[in-house]
Amino acid sequence: MILDFMRNDHRMCDHLYAEAENMLLIKESEKALTLFEKFSITTLHHFDMEEKELFITFEKRTGMMGGPTQMMRYEHQQLRSLIESMRLALRENRTDDFFGIGESFMIMLQQHNMKEEQMLYPMIDRALGSDARLMVQTLQEMVP
């Protein structure tokens, strides 16, 4: 339940990033910036859903306060910083830097996503049990 919902959200973020990158490839800088902002909002919202709802509920259920969720929060911080660096590069028309930072960002993001999808979300699904459906509703109602 949680796994499916959050995995789909990961894919949506990936697609938005790819679209922004593709626009920059064909030198459509304005469109690239617009799509990048959309990607940034969606991704940061995804992190918020996790940090403000999902992880807190999971920690309360399991008592695992300093474990996987803490690691994910730490990685979110690094990813936020990379998004900011990319935004700056895009605004200053430093295209090569954007792609260069984007490469590191993409690998880091995908490693992060793999860990969540393969380990953390299944753990959360097990911990929440039948309440997982309610959690998905709560997450859907959160406003970016």
Partner: peptide, 8 residues
């Protein structure tokens, strides 16, 4: 116990 990749 979860021990996925952290930066450390």
């Amino acid at each position: 116990m979860f021990k996925g990749l952290s930066l450390d």
